[in-house]
């Protein structure tokens, strides 16, 4: 009996060491415990982490040379890159190096970051070893190394969303958008700026948004992201169908050209958008997408 109790205590304390929670809490209920800003060390490394965090929060200001739109990393990667379900930074860090079908080879984390700038930020890739990449990598490394992560939440990217029962519709999506999204993202998807000039709600399409090469320009990824995270603070409140429809409405508007553009929309579609999850090159609402934003 005494032996059993000692064993139980030992198991409990080991489990507690591992995740900071009592052992009787089943693993699927463990939260991910992510480090807070005040945990950033006050040394040379900590300085790089802080710099990475600044770039993450206000990319246009702190990595200006590489940004071609109004977005910042934090606009999609919620809770400063911590939130599961919004492609958290710690899960990405854990997942690389990884093979990517996008460029048919194994990419390092730094190479993956380059593509964020090229596509999602509609800018240009900082060279490998550039202080911007070093800072962002430091921020991701710090977050991952200091996290106690729920093993169920380690999947990188966005959760998968079941296909809708009815094919997504631009017209239905327009209604979902007006009722749930327009309040923050504006009637023309342009986003909104705060008093004082800071962009608060990101543009979803048009010249100041991500370009056609970004992951978010895919219907499945956008639908999953929207379902999980939108409207802000009300994630999960839209039906699957609504999420797909409103994703279709969003992707049914033009945005900056894919930097891999060959000079022909048809050819670019065949080479890089040969998937039903991309509307690039499709005729939607009277406009062949991929020819440049028509609004403004």
């Amino acid at each position: 009996m005494k032996y059993l109790m000692t064993l139980a205590l030992l198991v409990t304390s080991l489990a507690t060491l591992g995740n900071g929670l009592p052992a009787d809490v089943p693993p699927e209920e463990w939260p991910s415990v992510l480090p807070a800003d005040h945990d950033i060390p006050k040394d040379e490394f900590g300085k790089m982490v802080r710099q990475g965090q600044l770039i993450f929060s206000d990319t246009g200001q702190f990595a200006r040379a590489y940004v071609g739109n109004d977005l910042s990393c934090r606009n999609c990667h919620l809770d400063q890159g911590r939130k599961a379900g919004s492609a958290p930074l710690w899960a990405a860090f854990l997942s690389y190096p990884a093979y990517r079908a996008k460029n048919h080879r194994v990419n390092t984390f730094e190479e993956r970051l380059q593509d964020c700038f090229r596509y999602s930020m509609n800018g240009k890739a900082p060279p490998l070893g550039d202080p911007v990449l070093v800072a962002l990598e430091s921020y991701a490394y710090w977050m991952e190394k200091n996290a106690k992560i729920n093993p169920r939440l380690t999947e990188r990217g966005f959760p998968k969303l079941q296909k809708p029962s009815t094919p997504p519709s631009y017209e239905r999506g327009k209604i979902v958008y007006a009722n749930n999204c327009e309040l923050c993202h504006g009637s023309n998807g342009q986003g909104r700026i705060a008093n004082g000039g800071h962009l608060v709600f990101p543009p979803l399409w048009g010249n100041r948004s991500f370009n056609w090469g970004a992951g978010m320009a895919h219907l499945d990824k956008a639908a999953a992201y929207i379902k999980t995270n939108m409207p802000l603070s009300l994630g999960g409140s839209l039906s699957n169908q609504d999420a797909w429809d409103v994703a279709y409405f969003m992707e049914g508007h033009d945005r900056p050209q894919d930097p891999r553009y060959t000079g022909s929309v048809d050819e670019t579609r065949a080479l890089f958008h040969h998937t039903q999850n991309s509307l690039y090159g499709h005729l939607v609402a009277g406009h062949v997408l991929g020819n440049g934003p028509v609004s403004k």
């Binding site: 809770d79 309040l183 909104r192 705060a194 008093n195 608060v200 709600f201 802000l232």
Partner: peptide
């Protein structure tokens, strides 16, 4: 920073940096 474990976004995410307000629906 909000408290995302309870789906509470930062107030500043809608009311703007330092709570200075955004557009017609998010007062300072």
């Amino acid at each position: 920073h909000g408290r995302w474990s309870e789906n509470i976004p930062p107030c500043d995410d809608c009311h703007g940096p330092e709570g200075k307000g955004v557009g017609e629906n998010f007062p300072a």
